[in-house]
């Protein structure tokens, strides 16, 4: 009898150990705790010209702190915009209604996330609200081509330039009075132009 009790206890311990391991994997290793936490909170929508490679369940952060998650990304076929649903955790209920949402990248090659920068309104965002001020994802190719055009406009045609690039430069002075006019070909997204506007101002 004593032996069988020991046997049963050890089997019980084994099963408990296995279940504890599963629990550990679920809670500590995987995102289960975050996913189940998402059900709560209020939902606001934001429209973007371009969401880049933003994914559902990406982080929504404010001042670098996670305040919620992206719960859905849809395409609006009338306005050709992306509609992103953000679920904000309920304890962050004092976000001003004129907050700006921008799609940012963690590190150089990291995941994309939605960053919120607070506005000054005294009204707060609530369930079903829409964020009007948005800034699209930065598309690296557009930024690089923009940078190259700026370089060309500056007349920086010394050294290391390939023959194709020097061919572009003569055209640049013609376009230079209106810097943005050079770009619309590839920079059809207004937000990118907004971003680079300060760079133009420096010129």
């Amino acid at each position: 009898m004593q032996h069988s009790k020991l046997l049963e206890t050890s089997v019980g311990l084994f099963v408990a150990l296995g279940l504890v391991s599963l629990f550990f994997l679920a809670m500590q290793v995987s995102n289960l705790a975050d996913v189940t936490g998402d059900a709560r909170g209020y939902r606001v929508t934001a429209r973007f010209q371009n969401v880049g490679s933003l994914k559902v369940r990406a982080t929504v952060s404010m001042a670098g702190v996670r305040v919620g998650r992206v719960s859905a990304i849809r395409f609006d076929k009338e306005s050709y915009e992306a509609v992103v649903d953000l679920t904000i955790d309920p304890q962050f209920d004092t976000i001003p209604s004129d907050t700006t949402a921008s799609i940012l990248t963690q590190g150089l090659l990291g995941e994309q996330y939605v960053g919120l920068s607070p506005g000054a309104e005294s009204e707060y965002l609530k369930e079903g609200d829409k964020i009007d001020l948005t800034q699209s994802a930065m598309v690296l190719e557009q930024v690089i081509s923009r940078f190259l055009f700026d370089k060309a406009e500056n007349g920086d045609k010394r050294a290391s330039e390939t023959p194709e690039q020097t061919q572009v430069t003569p055209a640049a002075p013609v376009a230079s009075p209106i810097p943005e006019a050079v770009v619309p070909g590839e920079g059809a997204i207004p937000d990118v132009q907004q971003e680079s506007a300060p760079a133009g101002a420096i010129q």
Binding site: F14, L17, G18, L19, S21, L22, F24, L25, V29
Partner: peptide, 15 residues
């Protein structure tokens, strides 16, 4: 019944 428990244990100890 034992295999999934053992595999979970393996993964946990491995982490």
């Amino acid at each position: 019944a034992s295999m999934p428990l053992l595999a979970a244990l393996f993964s946990m100890v491995g982490v």
